[in-house]
């Protein structure tokens, strides 16, 4: 296993994503609410380029006290990465599919050292 530079901590604004080439592998590094996360760029579905998809908030459908629904909403606390091949969505924090938590991304080891970020792959 090798260690690959993923840039400086300061290169990442909140909500940023950078896909890093790591030899044969590719890793997506995300900064969400001040925390860093790293996932292999291989979708749990068909190994598609999941980390190169759109970032969107999780969609919710609030149900009121009468059991009725009126509008959908975004969960402002839950950021998703969406695989561009077929649309599988994954929580960037947990790597899990919101509809089936057994469907999940493979974590890449991430190290922050002296203001620099490294991933192991």
């Amino acid at each position: 296993m090798n260690e690959y530079s993923a840039g400086k901590v300061d290169d990442y604004q909140d909500g940023d994503r950078k896909v890093v080439l790591c030899g044969e592998a590719e890793v997506g590094v995300f900064r969400i609410a001040g925390e860093f996360y790293a996932w292999h760029n291989r979708c749990a579905h068909r190994a598609g380029p999941v980390c190169q998809g759109r970032l969107m908030k999780r969609v919710l459908e609030p149900v009121d006290a009468d059991g009725q629904v009126r509008a959908q909403a975004y969960d402002e606390c839950e950021d998703h990465i969406i695989c561009p091949w077929h649309g599988y969505e994954f929580s960037i924090r947990t790597g899990r599919h919101p509809g089936n938590e057994r469907v999940r991304l493979r974590k890449a080891e991430l190290i922050v050292r002296d203001g620099e970020i490294y991933v192991r792959a």
Partner: peptide
């Protein structure tokens, strides 16, 4: 541990796939 990228990170040329991305890039994993 072998540390790669001493001269900086090697970012993928396409960071986000969109409607302008070349089919060959979209399907590179395939």
């Amino acid at each position: 541990m072998n540390v790669q990228g001493k001269f900086g990170p090697n970012y993928a040329a396409t960071q986000q796939i969109d409607v302008y991305t070349d089919t060959r890039e979209v399907l590179a994993h395939a």
